[in-house]
Structure formats: C-alpha cells, structure tokens
Design a protein around this nucleic acid. Structure first.
Lengths: 202, 202
DNA sequence: GATACCATGTAAAGCGTTACATGATTGG
DNA sequence: CCAATCATGTAACGCTTTACATGGTATC
C-alpha cells in the first residue's frame, strides 16, 4: 500500500487537488513514484473515507468545483508510522536484464534497438535528475519552498539533505544504467563483427 | 505479460516441472525475476491451453505423478517475438528512495535501520551475483550447460556473453545501491552529531 | 513414524494499466 | 468559437500477494 503513502508524502508539503497530484506524478516525480489519474482519484476518496485527509470544496469559475485535499493529524500519523516501519526487500522483476540475458534469441538489430532505448531513457532521466538536484540545492522547487515555509528553521537542513540523497541515488542509478547500456551495445558490435550468429536472425 | 516470457525463457534451456521452475524463481534467479508458485502453476496451465508448451505426465513413485513442461515451436516463436519487440520504458516506483526523501518525518534509529537493511540486502545480492558470474564463466551452472549442449558451438560465445552482461548489470546495480546506502548512513550520522532535529523523534 | 522435501493446486484481495467518459474554464 | 488545460470520475482486465489447502515420497 504505497500509492497511499506517496500521496500522503505530497500532501505533507501543501494541500492540493487530485489534478495537481496527477500533474506531479506525471512530471519529474514520475521517476520515483507514479500513478495514473484513474488510480489517484479513487485512492483520495478512500483516504477521505478512512479519515486521513480533509477535503475543502472550492468553486472554480461559475459552475465548476474542485476538491482540495489536505493531510490531517491521523494522516500524518499514518505517514510517520509507515516511514518509521521497515520496508522489507522483496524479489525484483527486471524485464530489461531478463531480456538481455536471452539476446541470442533476438537479432542484432532488435537487441541494439532495445539497448539504445535503455541508453536514451536513462540519459533523459539523468538530465532531469541533475536539474532537480540543482533546483533543490538552490531552493528553486516550489513544493520544497512550501514545505520549508511551514517547518522551523532547524529542520530545513535535514529536509533538503534527504531530498538530495534521494536524487543522488537516482542520478547514480541513471549513470549505472547508461554504462550498462553502452557495455551492451559494445558487446553487440563485437559479436557481430566477429560473425557470431544469433538464433533469431533470419 | 512477462511472467509468461520468464517461464518460456527458463524452458528454452530444458523441459521441467512447475516445481523446478518455482525453485529457480526462489533461488538466484529471484533477483532478476521471481514469482510465487500460486502464480506459476496457473500460468503454466494457461500456456498449455494456449499451445505454447507441451506436457508430459510422468509417474513419481507408486501413486504420484508430475507434469514436465517443454517449450514447443509456437512457444519458441512467441518468446522470440517478445524478445525482438521493444519493451517500452514505463515510470518506476522506488519505495526506498521515496522513503529516504522523507526521512525528516522518521527517527534517526528507524532511518538508520532502513538504510542498514538496504546495505545488507544489496551486499547479499552482490555476493550471489559475483558467484553466479564466476559460475557462468566456468560453465558450472547446470541450466547453462543444458542450454549449450543443445545449441551449436558457434552460438556458445553469444549465449555466455549475454548472460554475463545481465549479471554484470546486476553487480553494478548492487554496488551502486551499497554506495548509496553508505552515503545515507553517513548523512544520518552527520546530521545527528550536529543535533539536527527530526520531526518523527519523540 | 516423524521430518523434510516433492508436487500442485484454489481463492480473495489488492494493486496497476488501459480504455471509456464527461464537462467547465481560460486565452487567443 | 476553438483549443488547451483544468478537473474528475468509472470499468474491465490483468498481474501480484497472501493465505488456505492437500497429499505423496524419501530418509532417518
């Protein structure tokens, strides 16, 4: 049950609508946690039902309304309970490594395409995360500024430091995956130039 | 739909029972792909129904039987189709980074415990993967030997090289996560020694 | 005969993806 | 008035986890 905790985490910064949460999960946050709006709106309703968030219904224009969710005392307690609790390490599922292990069943072209996409994906991710790290460092992130504004000065250092720790982790991951993709592409070049046959080739 | 392809991948090495597949997914393979038996047995039945695997029912002792699954022509085609197809990159969900980003809501003790578990988990994973890489290099893996035995000599280099590529990726990932966990533990030590308060502290 | 291992299932509940669906507001 | 954006939902389907469940075989 972590979508709930990801939503509570966002709401500890400031109250917002489901739509704003959807936007965050579509943006740079998507590389840490993401969910479609079809999952977010019902979960917010359940969190409201379970008394973890309060809702303010605010008019929007003449006829429309929007629902602004804010975390309440019970929600903050639940979030803190979750964050203090040890999250166990479960078996992973890495479809890209699974695929790479069986590239002899593919073709050089298809294998290269997959590895190139891997490289592109993590190159984009790296750029985004480096930018985010810099933005956090210079307090250019509005959500972070909101968060800092409502917490005492002496907590600021920890708040910023922990966010930076996460982003440095993502940066390290992106660099590692880029390196791995390059290694894969180099291996494919080497094997093809040696004329090593693949089973998937026509 | 990747459990199906993970199972097909295993069955390209040799025919086996659901129980043997369960064992593999519980062992060192678990760090690349894993599934509980409650997912594996029904999926094998569906694959049988869909004509991707053949089944041989073999007696076991006096009264018991076992079902040995082998991949057939259609199954191999489906596996090759999947491996040639580009797997898109979807938004990730990393609960450990999400948690780390909000450690100011935790306590030093709980945050340290989580990071220590992270370190332990990936240290174990690193040991396992280094061993597997070495075993593959020296053809000490029975599944790999079965696989090589049924393929022509000229494909052997690629088969071994792609498996090693995957394991090197897992090793790089484990090292990266170990490094990150150490960074996190160091940060926690530094903040605590400076007396920076956390919101979750009693 | 007890224990560990072999072997295979079902079922409920939860989580995630994809598609379908609707309507208001804002700015050009 | 048209397009982009704001805003919020439902539904079907598939995958994953956890729990419940059963019985044979091999070895000491």
């Amino acid at each position: 049950m972590s979508l709930r905790h990801a939503l509570l985490a966002m709401l500890t910064a400031e109250p917002m609508t489901g739509y704003e949460l959807v936007k965050y999960f579509d943006g740079s946050v998507a590389y840490v946690w993401s969910a479609p709006h079809s999952q977010i709106y019902p979960e917010l309703r359940r969190m409201e039902r379970d008394g973890l968030v309060d809702v303010e219904i605010v008019p929007r224009g003449e006829h429309a309304k929007k629902r602004i969710y804010s975390i309440n005392e019970a929600g903050l307690e639940e979030f803190q309970r979750w964050i203090r609790e040890l999250t166990p390490y479960q078996p992973e599922r890495d479809v890209y490594r699974l695929k790479a292990a069986h590239f002899e069943q593919s073709t050089y072209e298809a294998a290269r395409r997959q590895m190139q996409e891997h490289l592109n994906h993590y190159t984009r991710a790296l750029q985004i995360w480096k930018q985010v790290l810099d933005d956090v460092d210079n307090r250019r992130v509005s959500l972070l500024r909101e968060r800092l504004a409502q917490r005492p000065q002496e907590e600021h250092e920890a708040i910023v430091a922990f966010r930076k720790l996460t982003f440095r982790g993502q940066i390290a991951k992106a660099r590692m995956e880029i390196q791995w993709a390059k290694e894969g592409l180099a291996l494919l070049d080497e094997l093809e130039s040696k004329g090593v046959p693949l089973r998937g080739e026509p």
